[in-house]
């Protein structure tokens, strides 16, 4: 699961962009150029991803006619309902029409119960974002701690332990981790309820308790990946001449770590984090069904199994937007982190 995402520089515009050129260019122009470049790369991806999403519904051959009219419907009835809903128009026309509603936050209504999809997603998004956000936090904190520790204490038992941990975790699918956590912490040692969700404003303590196991299950993969990338990146940076120079100048190990090594060696780990985000968002499908949470991942899976196309399309679009926004943030961080770009601003 892990080796698929390492060092994918082509997937992230900031890394491909190359060093910022022209020392005389003011920072504002640099930021504007970055924004333009990001838009130029993000908009086609958004359009293509949403088109795929839309196409999925169109190709499925499912229509509300079948669901609304039942098995007794005559072909004429079906054709009439399809025409009423505009499903007999060319796919591209339907897509543009659909997209114009989507950008206004209107995903249509469920074919099964007629409830607005965006309001249903809104109700469930807080569940998924709680878990995904907490998982992201665990991934960043634990991954950084392990990766930095392994790089600072290279060749010691700690370094080897981190390496072993990473390769073991790489073979553990999140749902296996989830089941193991439930067996240990809910069945054998009855410490935590195995399933459910309580909103934060109702009972913060219970909220945290209930999202901890799913978040750990979801994040473990990312922890290992970030730790490994960070260790490789930092160990590489430690071998550079500027670190030797800093040592010769008499700088302390802490200052070398934070000012020289971390800034130069953390890039790959940050890109990995960006590539992990789709998995954190998508992993919601599995963790939510294991831990009995009615989040938006489970909503998507249930909708897909029942053939409720607007529900599936709506959840996919929301997930795609989440991923694109998160990736843009990671790219911005990457650019800020790069010493060469920073020196000029």
């Amino acid at each position: 699961m892990t080796a698929t995402v390492v060092e994918s520089t082509w997937a992230n515009p900031a890394a491909v962009a190359g060093p910022a050129r022209g020392g005389a260019v003011p920072a504002v122009a640099g930021a504007a150029r970055w924004l333009l470049r990001t838009l130029a790369l993000t908009v086609p991806v958004f359009l293509f991803a949403t088109f795929l999403t839309f196409l999925l519904g169109a190709v499925s051959g499912l229509s509300p006619a079948g669901l609304l009219l039942g098995d007794a419907a005559t072909p004429a009835d079906v054709a009439r309902v399809r025409a009423e809903l505009g499903l007999d128009r060319p796919v591209l026309v339907q897509y543009v029409d659909w997209l114009s509603h989507v950008v206004r936050g209107d995903f249509g209504s469920s074919w099964l119960n007629g409830v607005s999809v965006s309001s249903q997603i809104g109700d469930r998004l807080s569940v998924s974002l709680s878990v995904a956000g907490f998982a992201l936090l665990i991934a960043v904190v634990a991954g950084t701690a392990l990766g930095v520790g392994a790089a600072v204490w290279r060749g010691t038992w700690f370094d080897r332990a981190v390496t072993v941990f990473c390769s073991v975790v790489a073979a553990l699918p999140p749902f296996v981790v989830a089941v193991a956590l439930i067996v240990v912490f809910s069945v054998l040692l009855p410490l935590v309820p195995s399933a459910g969700y309580v909103p934060f404003d109702q009972d913060p303590g219970m909220w945290l308790t209930l999202i901890t196991l799913p978040a750990v299950a979801l994040s473990l993969d990312a922890v290992a990946d970030i730790a490994r990338q960070l260790r490789t990146g930092l160990a590489g940076a430690y071998r550079e001449n500027y670190v030797l120079g800093a040592v010769v100048r008499g700088l302390g190990p802490r200052r070398i770590l934070f000012n020289h090594v971390l800034r130069n060696g953390a890039g790959p780990a940050l890109s990995v984090l960006g590539l992990r985000i789709p998995m954190l968002v998508g992993g919601a499908v599995v963790t939510e069904s294991i831990f009995g949470m009615s989040g938006f991942g489970r909503f998507a899976a249930d909708g897909a199994l029942r053939g409720d196309v607007p529900v599936v399309q709506g959840t996919l679009v929301v997930a795609i937007v989440l991923v694109l926004v998160a990736n843009t943030i990671v790219d911005a961080l990457l650019l800020r982190l790069r010493p060469a770009a920073r020196r000029r601003s």
Binding site: S8, G282, A304, L322
Partner: peptide
């Protein structure tokens, strides 16, 4: 761009949606 889009797709949700709908 196509490959970038595939990377951006929320992995499991998309796999679930595509499999179930098709």
């Amino acid at each position: 761009r196509v490959m970038e889009t595939f990377v951006t797709l929320p992995f499991l949700v998309f796999a679930v949606a595509m499999t179930a709908l098709l």
